[in-house]
Design a protein around this nucleic acid. Structure first.
Lengths: 222, 222
DNA sequence: ATCGAAGAATCGTTGAACAATTCGACAATG
DNA sequence: CATTGTCGAATTGTTCAACGATTCTTCGAT
């Protein structure tokens, strides 16, 4: 069927393991708000629901715990992570570190184009008045900024941070006017990036993150 | 015995689970060079060696894999992570992001004192001509810099990065004169930090990281 | 020397089992 | 009434044995 491996590195087809599919499913439910912070995840129940063995569920839990989406309490069980004092600040501290650093380093034309694409995606979502899509676009925007650095490790860190934020800030800011403000900021940041004014882009981004943190801090009980 | 819970949050005694102790043991062996990059870790063997079940070993592997210390190859097994093209640059990209960001934010007097303590630790190790201790001191120094930010998440990221570096650069630079150069730089960085010249401290640190990356790139085959 | 097929080794996953721990209810005590 | 102690149910942590699937190795045939 397939011609004999021409050139491209042999790619393992790598069907995701059952444990990974379980983790993926749970990640999905966490992002969609089907599993809310504090909820208990009983091994046996989930194993039965998903038709897998308890051990497999445990492996999935280990993965999610390493991403801070769930918390293991010894001998008590696994719970969906809850927002504790300082967590918001903590998350934004990570974002400031890696996003600002990434944008200050600039990036290839393709990567910059990806940032621009995310901005446009946001504009289209705004035009369509699709709040959900707007939220996604915003995450794509910030993901694209980190992607400028072309660092596997920073990318996964950012992926984890964004997953946490989806969990905590789930539908928190369904207020439309928040997003429109973001849009303008994103546009400005992107423009500075495209113009090669990296220092300024970094400042703008930093300002955005600080304001965003402030906002989340007031929305959630300090 | 203990007075009735005065103030401090209730702390779970939390005996580390068997899986965590296995992970800890493996982490130790990885840091000490008993397990070299590329080595295969057979589940059954390790389970028998440590007197635990195969499933427990698997849980430990999941943890180590999330820290990038080992790599899982589906249906083939777990191998100690090997340095691939771009990994050195990648690691330093993460370090630049979080270390520079942390030092630019300054920190409490205690945290700054901890940085100073790490510098002194390095000086003592140098005086004692203890190369091993010198390496540790250097890691403590950079860990203390990240700790300035008082961010759980940045701390664990840094812990993982340093663990990776211990794995890869194990005894690579046992050349003593490398370390003495570090010492002076660390002193200068710490001095700037103590003087509140955060911008300059950040520049110094950035310069150090760039040079250090350069060095590692030449030592290891580009 | 190349190729392919049989056999061994190892992984992925399941299912069952059991001790240890936690939790909830309920009774006993002061 | 609040505290303490006890019992039983539920759940976790861990082990063990099993089996199909995949990979590695060996070895013989071409």
């Amino acid at each position: 069927m397939a011609p004999t491996q021409t050139g491209s590195a042999r790619v393992r087809v790598a069907v995701p393991s059952v444990a990974e599919r379980v983790a993926e499913e749970l990640r999905y439910q966490l992002a969609e708000g089907m599993l809310l912070p504090g909820a208990r995840l009983t091994e046996a129940t989930i194993a039965e629901d998903l038709g897998v063995s308890r051990n497999t569920v445990r492996e999935a839990f280990a993965e999610l715990a390493s991403e801070r989406l769930v918390v293991r309490q010894p001998n008590r069980g696994v719970f969906v992570a809850t927002l504790e004092a300082g967590d918001i600040h903590d998350l934004y501290t990570v974002r400031r570190a890696i996003e600002v650093s990434s944008i200050r380093g600039g990036g290839s034309a393709e990567r910059v184009a990806a940032v621009r694409a995310a901005v446009d995606e946001g504009k289209r979502a705004a035009a369509a008045d699709d709040n959900d899509a707007l939220g996604s676009a915003n995450q794509h925007f910030h993901g694209a900024i980190v992607a400028l650095a072309e660092s596997k490790r920073l990318d996964t860190i950012m992926r984890h941070v964004l997953a946490e934020m989806r969990l905590y800030f789930h539908k928190a800011t369904s207020d439309a006017h928040f997003y429109s403000a973001w849009l303008e900021e994103n546009e400005a940041i992107c423009a500075a990036l495209e113009a090669g004014e990296l220092e300024r882009a970094g400042e703008l981004l930093l300002g955005y993150l600080n304001r965003s943190e402030e906002q989340q801090l007031t929305v959630h009980g300090e």
